[in-house]
């Protein structure tokens, strides 16, 4: 029984780590070297619009994508449904609109490489030289 519980715990932990497995990328021209989770949360909840001195353009991926669920849960402590609800409320309050959505890692990289203040998250395997990877502290 103990073995079973341990196995379940290890499996759950592995899934959690996998879900949060994302790489944050910004435009190559952005001077920012790293970012902390509090700042990331502010960017993705519309509280901050500043990213290394540029107007921030945060990018989400499809709300049903596993990487989105992992990122939002890790950074904003909200599941995609709660995050969508949060942005409905923000709009009604007149506080802004949700970040744009791109449907794939390649699309995210495409936007980030062209927009100076853009920031997005992609799978590690999808990172290219077109964007700059910044560690999340």
């Amino acid at each position: 029984m103990k073995k079973l519980l341990t196995s379940i715990f290890v499996l759950a932990a592995a899934i959690a780590v996998a879900a949060a497995d994302y790489i944050v990328v910004v435009n190559k021209g952005n001077s920012i070297a790293s970012i902390d989770k509090a700042t990331l949360k502010r960017l993705y909840t519309g509280k901050s619009k500043d990213l290394g001195g540029k107007v921030a353009v945060p990018i989400n991926q499809d709300m049903t994508a596993p990487i989105t669920k992992g990122f939002l849960t890790d950074v904003t402590a909200q599941a995609p449904d709660a995050y969508k609800e949060f942005w409905v409320a923000q709009q009604i309050k007149g506080l802004g609109s949700a970040p744009m959505i791109q449907r794939s890692d390649a699309s995210v990289i495409g936007v980030v490489s062209n927009v100076p203040g853009a920031i997005g998250y992609v799978a590690k395997a999808s990172v290219t030289d077109a964007v700059k990877v910044i560690p999340v502290q």
């Binding site: 609109s97 744009m100 959505i101 449907r103």
Partner: peptide, 16 residues
Amino acid sequence: SVFAQEQDRKFEVYGF
């Protein structure tokens, strides 16, 4: 729509 895919959303209409 709350979540839009356009890159350039200069004008939006929404409400309740």
